[in-house]
Amino acid sequence: MTAPVLAARGITKTYRLGRQDIPVLRGVDLDVGEGEMVALLGASGAGKSTLLHVLGLLDPPTAGDVLFDGRPVHGLPIAERAQLRHAHTGFVFQFYHLIPELTALQNVMLAGMMTTSWLSWWKDRRAAKARAIAMLEHVGLADRMRHRPAELSGGERQRVAIARALLVGPKVILADEPTGNLDSKTAASVIELMFSLQAERRIAFLLVTHDESLASRCHRVVRMRDGVVVHG
């Protein structure tokens, strides 16, 4: 059996508020296999987003390990973690989190610049641009790529965010309520896009959601309550 592309082993995360310790994650274990679509359900404050940040190496766990392809990664140097975050995972956020000064195309291209040197990128810039254009075309934004985020609808912005997350071919996408800010029609189209990408590219998705119907379409549903996985 191959190692899960993303795994959590005994993850705890405690925040300190003044003199008080607030435990948010209390020993979370989780595996996400290659191409697996996992829904992460739970009430607000259950620790879903915190777990996502820890798994995406944005926030260090207080204890426990995060494993990428079976390899513990949180003890790595900061530059190496950034490199892994870039190559191994992609983030999709509820509020899209696009850079407002950049066009849709530039936002997607930006993802390809994070670990490449300026000189290499400059030499390869035409190919890099072509990849970003292809990705935007793939998510159905061929005619919107010169627009800035403020000129795009919510659904279009989320598609740009998905294209950005997919550009460097990550093994897993961490999506934090990707449809939480969209109307139902737009949300449905975004969900369809994610499912088609998962099927087409064998990319694993860890989807934080409150939507039971969406969760029911996933391969597996993981429920959290008060910082622990109650059903996986």
């Binding site: 530059a79 975050r85 190559a87």
Partner: peptide, 16 residues
């Protein structure tokens, strides 16, 4: 401020 988080999320190092 938020862009800093976005850049970190897509693989930007603090140095970068």
């Amino acid at each position: 401020w938020k862009d800093v988080g976005i850049l970190a999320a897509i693989g930007g190092t603090p140095r970068g």
